[in-house]
């Protein structure tokens, strides 16, 4: 994930900064508890395409 993009992107739902998860190749928002997929290198910045983080994943973060 490109550093510059990480710096400027925010979660479409919470407006907070995102973290990159190397493990799942997703952009993660702890506030909205959503993970945005990166498909073929293209971040998908739509709430309807995001995955809800599991309780376990939230504990880890």
């Amino acid at each position: 994930m490109n550093d510059y993009l990480l710096e400027i992107l925010v979660c479409p739902k919470s407006g907070d900064k995102l973290d990159y998860s190397k493990e799942t190749n997703e952009l993660v928002c702890k506030t909205s508890k959503l993970a945005y997929p990166i498909r073929d290198g293209i971040p998908i910045m739509l709430v309807q395409e995001a995955r809800a983080l599991s309780a376990n994943e939230l504990k880890k973060k």
Binding site: N2, Y4, L5, I8, L9, V10, C11, P12, G15, I42, P43, I44, M45, L46, E49
Partner: peptide
């Protein structure tokens, strides 16, 4: 050059970027 899937009416960038 970077590309993202996004709705122009709901930009997911911080203000004043």
């Amino acid at each position: 050059k970077h590309i993202l899937l996004m709705n122009g009416e709901e930009l997911t960038f911080a203000d004043n970027t």
